[in-house]
Design a binder for these strands. Sequence first.
DNA 1: GATGAATGAGGATTCATTCAT
DNA 2: AATGAATGAATCCTCATTCAT
Lengths: 213, 213, 213, 213
Amino acid sequence: MARQARAQIDELRPTRDVILDAAERLFAERGYAGVSMRDITAETGLKNQASLYHHFRNKRALYQAVLARGVSQITTLMPEPARSMEIDNNIDRLLDYLGQHPHLARLIQRAALDDSRYLGSTVRKVLNPIYAQGRQALSGADAVWERDEIPHLAAGLYHLIFSYFANAELLAVFIDDPLGPAAVERQRRFLKAAVALLLGVQASAPARQAERV
Amino acid sequence: MARQARAQIDELRPTRDVILDAAERLFAERGYAGVSMRDITAETGLKNQASLYHHFRNKRALYQAVLARGVSQITTLMPEPARSMEIDNNIDRLLDYLGQHPHLARLIQRAALDDSRYLGSTVRKVLNPIYAQGRQALSGADAVWERDEIPHLAAGLYHLIFSYFANAELLAVFIDDPLGPAAVERQRRFLKAAVALLLGVQASAPARQAERV
Amino acid sequence: MARQARAQIDELRPTRDVILDAAERLFAERGYAGVSMRDITAETGLKNQASLYHHFRNKRALYQAVLARGVSQITTLMPEPARSMEIDNNIDRLLDYLGQHPHLARLIQRAALDDSRYLGSTVRKVLNPIYAQGRQALSGADAVWERDEIPHLAAGLYHLIFSYFANAELLAVFIDDPLGPAAVERQRRFLKAAVALLLGVQASAPARQAERV
Amino acid sequence: MARQARAQIDELRPTRDVILDAAERLFAERGYAGVSMRDITAETGLKNQASLYHHFRNKRALYQAVLARGVSQITTLMPEPARSMEIDNNIDRLLDYLGQHPHLARLIQRAALDDSRYLGSTVRKVLNPIYAQGRQALSGADAVWERDEIPHLAAGLYHLIFSYFANAELLAVFIDDPLGPAAVERQRRFLKAAVALLLGVQASAPARQAERV
DNA sequence: GATGAATGAGGATTCATTCAT
DNA sequence: AATGAATGAATCCTCATTCAT
């Protein structure tokens, strides 16, 4: 993942946003407990941790703000009902975005793991929209799946999409440069085909056969 | 998820294993940085943190031991090449195990996220077998997929299987009691069907149609 | 103790006085070190600590202003030489005032404790008048006491009067509602009798005997 | 007040006691909020604040331990019922002790001020014995006082005795070296006479008259 | 093999204060 | 006159680790 330039305070961006950016990167990389307010301060370019507290009541509040922003960015990418015609569009949009912001996938996957038992259900509140939207989008998939399987399908698709980016670093073991354009393109191809198969959209299969020839 | 009894030192198990058990639970729940040696000491029933150092050189070493043990438990569950006949067996074995040790899925997903940049490639070393085995198992799936898509497929299947358990708590939002027997059974049904679709195993589809009637 | 309404900035009182009021209450309750500028800001109704510095150079200066004002209120209550006739008047005036401003007694007792070693002799300077006035008032008590005992007597009377109010909360253990009218009246009776005994004013004793009948 | 030598860790005293001693001195001098764990560490001779937490759960717990110890030292000095014959003994014992440990008087007076509203009623619990014992000791004083005045008398005597030492530094303004032997002796004389007057013990008055001649 | 004690470094958070607006 | 923002230093407390017993 390309190391983004350290956010500079002297830019014209509001300090609050600079903090959010820095915190987002760090929380995504090391998780809530793995990041100290000192780390965030340094990454921000601010000179003193006290400044953070001027903008966020405490570490938890900062984390939640980061999460809320990150999640809202994601949810706006998947607003449309998944009519077969538009599914590919949704996937395209998601992949485009996650390909460029892979740390967001990490951030969210971490949040999902930390939920409830550890960080309290505030995380759940903020992650709900993502799952919920996916589930709703699949409400018409009962050609292939039984009604009570739909939620499992929704979860599955969600994981299929996000985990690739969240675990990209690790996948480098057998996928060359997983976040590079070639690999992302391959993942896009794979994903579209996989979704088509899972949703029983016949049109795709022949298309793929054609492609292969 | 059934709350396992806190590991007691006074049991007959070797202290080293008691520590590993306690640490595994905690690391799975809160991640490496979210767990302190004191936490582990308490969960273990030992009275002093110094005791831990008698069995493990330091926190990192303990973590790696936990990880290695957890991963080896998983890898022994997926040893067989995925000939169509045996895929269902592999899935069954995995689901049976993960359904009873869902924190293992969390532990491993956390380790994947923490890799490289944060915890050093030791994690990678220990997680490699899981991905690798999956990839090899799919070496025959080129009826549906191009060769360069196979690794993406392997990763996808892996995520499909593990993420359900890793994120079970969160899924409770729209899946009732995700770790209860009913939900796990549904997930099993879904997974087998999904895998069949993805691997192009026609046999399954009719079977499902039959089931539905 | 009647909970005074929180000082509001939007009143017509000069901000400086509003700050002094708020600070007085807080310093009395928690002592110099136990109160932060932020606390005072909040109690005042101001929105930013910086505002305080517009009216007082720093925390110390604010504290001293509070103290000076509080002490001057007290000293004006005890100006008259303690001729036997007027002692009761002095006590009455003091008790009336302290009964309604018990936190002043606390403020001053705290200041006395914090003196010199901790907060510098500024406190001493401001508290001197109180002791001094008392001592002078007793210059005629040499019917009962030797000359070198007079200062001890002065200190004793002073403590007798102030400590009741300063420690009122604690006295609630065996005095019912120590700041309520009934208890204050009893304290008044007790004090007058005690002072009469200590100053050797015979007149009072019979008076008390009469009262008791 | 004679500056006691800084407690040294390398003495044979248990560390816990060394900490209590250091904390007692500091809390007495500057109050709960005015003392930092760092201060206490330094005064103790320990090299690191973390060591304090090995012996006391937190600052509050340390403070309460200090208080409990200090109060118990005081209460063992005033155990006997105040029969006229023995009052002087009680006073003597108290004065002897407080004369040598004047900071104990400060510590307790501070605790009384900080009670309830600020530090929680734990302080009250620990201070209760002092007041209570005094009150009980006076149960026979109804020759001079009405029954409902006895508690006020008890409080008064208590304040009379303790405040002298608590405020000794300040009294230096008009009492020369208030903690020196001469002044303490004068205070003893004064106190005994005052108590005799307040308790209506006639024997003392003539004795004093004789003394004066 | 287990524990009590100690410690340097670092954790989050608050302190009093200043400056520009 | 009031405020938002920033900051150095300090707050309490916990971290992982070591050593002697």
